[in-house]
Amino acid sequence: MSAGMIEIRWHGRGGQGAKTAALLFAEAVMATGMYIQAFPEYGPERMGAPVKSFNRVSEDPIVIHSGIKNPNYVVILDSSLMKSVPITDGIGKTGKVIANTSLSASEIAKELDIDINQIYVVNASRIALKTIGKDIPNTPMLGALVKVIGTLDIDDVLKNIKAKLTAKFRHEPGIVEGNLASIKMAFDEVRN
């Protein structure tokens, strides 16, 4: 990994939108002028099975095409994965975990056996139910990720995602508003 490159790993279950989140995040970040990559775990995908997806973000062109072993950020869409999947793999002492959970950062730190400063929590499922009406935590987690990274402009990201979703759901404007509200709410609520 070259200096200045950010690497992200998303953990979810098939159907929760881990791949979509990585793609949506990449497009939004590209709109801020950065080079991006977004890719799923290579292989078949099944509903409910643990899945991973990945992002790279860099000021410079990205030529590497390999899996991500030492992510700077790990995003967990489904807290039940913390017991069954080695989600802290390769994060070392500096990688940060952002979890969709109702628990506190200290409780998660204890469960994952890592430093509390590496943990960020947000109840993305509650936010999704409130704003979108369904437990689809991928878009709110995207807002939480933007906040934790800290160097990306949330307004640019929201603007791009609005344009993207408006084109996709032009017959269902409610979906667009709900998703945008969820991103903003998670951006505001994510805590260390």
Binding site: A22, M30, Y35, I36, Q37, A38, Y42, I62
Partner: peptide, 9 residues
């Protein structure tokens, strides 16, 4: 997958 499924600029 490496190229076919990787979103890039």
């Amino acid at each position: 997958f490496i190229t076919s499924h990787c979103m890039e600029v």
